[in-house]
Each structure stands twice: as structure tokens, then as C-alpha cells.
């Protein structure tokens, strides 16, 4: 009796698989967009900063499209798993978009030896960016980054700088050090929160978090100072903090968040999508939500975004190789 039941059920399960092949038709490029539910793949866990950005985009887009826009969290591998899944998708129909961030697109493919590069994507548009800064506690003797560099030159290897080892911040700070000849040691942390904890607890001397906003509370209270910003222009909330460019270092950078589709998406559809999503990204509703999330609305159109990503991918590749961090 048992065996009969087992055999029967296995048969029911296996039979349809025989018909499974070939039943799927290629999706034809539609002129109308969007006509159905759209999925935004967020490669980070629910509740994080990128996830909140994704949900803000979804809520604005849903109101405009009139069809559901759903955020699906595909976490893991430091955001590479979700990114790779979109990159290698062959079913680019415009209804699955990646909320991509700089680390997964331009840095990690080099350090982790992944199967994708920016060529696997077509960019729809850049949504926003953040201000990256260098922080330390108020009792440190340095007032600008130049002070620190001179100190670090006089005492090579004495100071610990906390940042994710081999991550974006590590690479950028290394570039700064290379320019000046300063030597420092990396104190590895996983995220901005840990970074702030290390700085406040006196474990590390200097911190390079992904966004200086992580220390906003301490900055307001005068317990933490920002030595310099990586961005092009000064931040509105920190009018007295110079950018690296102003201090004479040829280094500027702002980590961005962009919308991307797999390269298998037909070009005509991509053009249509760029237009549709531009309206979403440039809408005042989204700008308001992003500002609340401490993100700077920073729209770039699809073609420009694509160029930026490819250029940064190449640049970082060279730095990472010279630092000896590249995967074989």
C-alpha cells in the first residue's frame, strides 16, 4: 500500500516536468510599459538603508503606475547574490529591476572574483548618492585631514583607521594615503555602526564610514568631528567641513544607488523605461522621502549612469590590483 502511494505521488510530480521544457515563450518587447506588476530586487536585508530607499521608490512608482511595485529582498554575500542573479538573468523583460549599489557593481567583482561586470547590466538611471566623510572623536588633536596626514607621516603605522577591509572606503582612503605617502593600519569593521562604535570606544583613531550621517547625533553634540568629505561639494548640514578637493587632493567620490536591468533587455524597451523611471526618480514625492532617509537625490540619466559605472569599475580594478586585493 505504502509503495503504491509513493509511486503514485512521484508520478504526479514528475509527469509535468516532461512538458515543462519548451512551454515558455520568449517575451516580446512591449511598447507599452508598465502593464503589469514590477519587482525591485533589493540585494540587502529588509530594513536597511538601501531597502528603505527601494521601498520609497516602490511606493512612489506604484502610485504613478497604478500597478503593484514590489520590493523583493534577496540578501546575502554582501549584496552580491541578488546583484548576480539580476546580472545573469536572460529574461530581461523590464519588470525586474535591481536596486544596485556601488560596492556590488564596481568593487566586489574585483575582490571576490565574481561572474559579472557592469557589461551585464543596462542602467535605467541613478537615483541618489550619499556624502562620505572621515570622522574622529573630538579629543583627537587633528582639525583637518591634512593634520592627520602629517601626523601619520611622522609616525608610520601608528594609527588605526576603521573601515571595511578591501571595501570601497578602504580603497579610497588607501588612494589618499598613496597620494601623500602617509602610512596607517586598517582596523576592519563590517558596517557603519561598528565603525562608529570603534571610533567612540577609542579602538580606532579614525573612521571612514560609508556615510558620515551615521555619527550625526555625536556630531551635533560635538563629540565627533568630521575631518573632510569625499564628495564634490560641501554638505548642507556641515558648512564648515571642507571637501578633499578643496584641500588639494584630486579625489572625489559619492557612493550612489541606481536602478539597473539585465543586459538581455531589448534596447527599445530600455529607452522607454528610462523615460518612465526618470519621472519617478525626479518626482518631488521621492525627493522628500529620500531626504528623510539621508540620501541626496542625485539623478543621472541611463546613458550617463552606465558610463559612470563602467569607468569606476575600471578605475577601482586598477587600484585593487595595486593593493594586492584582487581575486585570482
Amino acid at each position: 500500500m505504502k509503495k503504491v502511494i509513493v509511486a503514485l505521488f512521484l508520478l504526479v510530480l514528475v509527469l509535468p516536468c516532461a512538458f515543462a521544457q519548451g512551454s515558455k515563450e520568449a517575451v516580446s518587447a512591449e511598447v507599452e510599459y508598465p502593464t503589469g506588476p514590477v519587482t525591485l530586487i533589493c540585494p540587502w536585508a529588509a530594513g536597511g538603508s538601501t531597502d528603505i530607499t527601494a521601498r520609497a521608490i516602490a511606493s512612489v512608482a506604484e502610485a504613478r503606475f497604478g500597478s503593484p511595485v514590489v520590493v523583493v529582498n534577496r540578501e546575502g554575500g554582501g549584496s552580491t547574490i541578488g546583484t548576480q542573479e539580476v546580472a545573469l538573468s536572460t529574461k530581461g523583460d523590464g519588470y525586474t529591476l535591481l536596486v544596485g549599489t556601488i560596492n556590488a557593481l564596481a568593487v566586489l567583482p574585483h575582490t571576490m572574483g565574481l561572474a559579472y561586470s557592469p557589461a551585464n547590466f543596462k542602467a535605467i538611471g541613478q537615483v541618489c548618492s550619499r556624502d562620505m566623510g572621515i570622522i574622529c572623536t573630538a579629543d583627537k588633536p587633528w582639525n583637518t585631514i591634512t593634520d592627520f596626514i602629517q601626523d601619520a607621516k611622522a609616525n608610520p603605522g601608528k594609527y588605526l583607521v576603521s573601515c571595511p577591509q578591501g571595501g570601497l572606503q578602504n580603497i579610497l582612503f588607501q588612494r589618499l594615503a598613496d597620494m601623500t605617502g602617509a602610512q596607517f593600519r586598517v582596523y576592519p569593521v563590517n558596517n557603519d555602526t561598528e565603525n562608529l562604535t570603534a571610533v567612540l570606544g577609542g579602538v580606532s583613531d579614525l573612521g571612514v564610514p560609508g556615510s558620515y550621517d551615521v555619527a550625526a547625533g555625536q556630531i551635533a553634540a560635538g563629540q565627533v568631528k568630521v575631518l573632510a568629505l569625499f564628495s564634490d561639494t560641501r554638505a548642507a548640514s556641515l558648512p564648515n567641513v571642507p571637501t578633499l578637493k578643496e584641500l588639494g587632493f584630486d579625489l572625489s567620490f559619492a557612493p550612489w544607488t541606481s536602478l539597473l536591468v539585465p543586459a538581455s533587455t531589448p534596447d527599445s524597451l530600455v529607452e522607454k523605461m528610462r523615460g518612465v523611471w526618470r519621472e519617478v526618480i525626479q518626482s518631488p514625492e521621492l525627493a522628500a522621502l529620500l531626504a528623510k532617509n539621508k540620501q541626496k537625490p542625485d539623478y543621472l540619466d541611463g546613458a550617463e549612469t552606465q558610463l559612470t559605472i563602467e569607468k569606476q569599475f575600471k578605475d577601482f580594478g586598477e587600484t585593487i590590483k595595486s593593493m594586492g586585493l584582487a581575486a585570482k
Binding site: V6, F9, L13
Partner: peptide, 28 residues
């Protein structure tokens, strides 16, 4: 049979979809 049931659910979900295969697996 229980290990088989969990595998049936796993592979069934990949081919048939979750809801259909869960009907089958519960009955089984």
C-alpha cells in the same frame, strides 16, 4: 517517506510551483 516528502516539496516547487506541490505533499 518524510525525507522524500521534503524533497518532493523542494523539487516540486521548482517545477510545478509552491502551491500545487504543497497540495500534493500534504495529501501524501
Amino acid at each position: 517517506p518524510m525525507v522524500l516528502a521534503s524533497l518532493m516539496l523542494y523539487f516540486g516547487t521548482k517545477t510545478l510551483g509552491f502551491y500545487t506541490s504543497s497540495v500534493i505533499v500534504i495529501a501524501y
